[in-house]
Amino acid sequence: MDDIKVKINDLTLHYGTNPALKNINMEIPEKMVTAFIGPSGCGKSTFLRTLNRMNDLIDNVKIDGEVIIDGLNIYNKDIDVVNLRKKVGMIFQKSNPFAKSVYDNVAFGPRINGISQRNKLDEIVEYSLKQAAIWDEVKGRLHNSALSLSGGQQQRLCIARTLAVNPDIILMDEPASALDPISTSKIEELIHELKQQYTIIIVTHNMQQAARTSDFTAFFYLGELVEFNKTEVMFSNPAKRQTEDYISGRFG
C-alpha cells in the first residue's frame, strides 16, 4: 500500500458526556484524496477537526486515543499546536475570507510567519493563487475586498490562503456544498491538481463527488467508522450492508 500520512489509533471523542466518535482506527495514505461520507451528525466534521486539533477551541471536549502524523502523536503533551495547524490546513464549509483585500487574505499566513518583504510576499501570493486556479480571475483586483468575490471564488481564495502557508495535509469540510455546479466542478478539478503535492481529506454529502474526486472513502455512522477502503471498491462492492444502503441513497 501507499505511504501512510495519518494514522488514527483508538480515537474516541466526547462532547461533555455524549460520545461523538467511538474507537476509530484508520490509516490515511499520503498524497491521495480520502473522502469521509456518512449521514448528517455522524461525526465527520468532528473527526476532521481532531486532525488539526481545532476541537481544542471547544469547551468540554474529551479526546482519547492517538492521531499520528509523520510519526508523531499530535495529542502528545508538548506538541506545538500552532505549527501543527500550519502543517494541517483546513478549508471550511462556509467560505470565510477575512474582510481584507484578496492580497491580504493570501498574505495572512506568510505574514504571521514573519515574511514581510514585499517581493517575497508578492511571489507567494501569486504562486498560491495560481495553485488554487484563481489567479486569472483576480489578478486585476488583488487589492479589492475579498468579500466582493463570488462564493466559488471566495472558496478558492480560502484554498489559496491555506496553500500559502504550505501545509502537507489539507482538510476540507464540505468545501463545495454551498456552491453552484460550475464552481463545484472547478473545486473538484483543483482537488485533483492538488493531490500531486498534498494529502487531502474531504468531507462530502455528495456521493458522485466522493466517487469522482477521492482515492479512498471512509463511511461513518453514529460516530463509528463502518467501512474504509479504496473508493472503487466502496462504490462497486461495499463489504457492509449499511454502506451499500447509504451509497445507494436508501437512507441518510
Partner: peptide, 22 residues
Amino acid sequence: PADMREASLALGATKWQTIRKV
C-alpha cells in the same frame, strides 16, 4: 463570527496573532 477566528487559527496563527489581526 467564530469562523473568522477559526480561519486565522487554522492558518497557524497564534492566539495573540488572531486577536491582533482579526
